[in-house]
Every structure is written in C-alpha cells, then in structure tokens.
C-alpha cells in the first residue's frame, strides 16, 4: 500500500435537521462498501460508546446518531484546540431494500460497523441467456 499524507479536515456541522437538544452535532466520516449480498457502513464516532448510539431504518432512510461521553472533561479547561467535540448524526437514503431483521451493528474503539444485508428479492440476479 502506498503511504498517503494524512490530513485532518475540520468536522462539518450537521445543519439539515434541527435537534431538540441544544449543542452542535457533527457529521461522522463514513466508508460505504457494497458486496453482492450486503451493504457495509463504517462511521468514525470517537468518544461514543455502544450504549449512546442509535441506529434506525425507517422509510428507506438509515439514520445513525451518537452522543459523546463528557464526564472526563470535568474540572478541566482547554488550553489548545484543533477539533470540536459534539454529538454525531448522519442520514442516508438507501436505494435497495434491506433485510432489517438481519442487520448487524458493532461498535469498536469509536468505529461503528454496520452490515446491512440486502433483501433476497433485491439481490442482483444473473439472467442466463440461452442460445437460440
């Protein structure tokens, strides 16, 4: 693998939907990958544990939300800052049908991994062409 220069981009604030709680919400970086059987999604959500996470699908919209833990900031004051701290939220509209009862979600070291299996009838099928 070639080494690439790692650049940090500033977190983008989520502005499309207003939240009921005050405080800014940011958009997590995601990778989305598709195999013939499933759609995979990984989202970087540092500071979020598995209990503060909300993943749901409704009307073909996948939404992920995570709240950051703040206890460890108690009694301290920032002296130098390069990144913002806030909750995370992002929504995707899904083009294919997902077998929602078989979705697997896992949170490891601040990364959410979602496996969204495609519904049987939505999987691509190869149609055999017979010679005349």
């Amino acid at each position: 693998m070639t080494t690439q220069e790692l650049t940090a981009h500033e977190k983008q604030e989520m502005r499309t939907a207003e939240t009921t709680r005050p405080g800014r919400t940011y958009i997590p970086d995601v990778d989305i990958y598709e195999t013939p059987d499933s759609l995979w999604l990984w989202a970087d959500m540092p500071g979020v544990d598995e209990n503060s996470l909300d993943v749901r699908i409704a009307d073909s919209v996948l939404s992920i939300e995570g709240r950051v833990a703040l206890q460890e900031y108690s009694d301290s004051t920032p002296v130098y800052t390069e990144y913002h701290v806030g909750n995370y939220a992002r929504r995707f509209s899904l083009s294919g049908e997902i077998a929602s009862e078989r979705i697997k979600a896992r949170m490891t070291n601040g990364v959410l991994e979602l496996e969204l299996p495609k519904a049987e009838h939505a999987k691509p099928r190869r149609i055999a062409v017979s010679a005349a």
Binding site: L6, T7, D75, T77, Y80, T81, E82, Y83
Partner: peptide
Amino acid sequence: GKGVYPPVNVFSNK
C-alpha cells in the same frame, strides 16, 4: 497547526 492528522486538543486541570 490545524489540518494535520490526527487533531489534538490539550486541556489542563489542577
């Protein structure tokens, strides 16, 4: 400065 991965925050306490 900003733009280098990973971003750093520094806090102080007593």
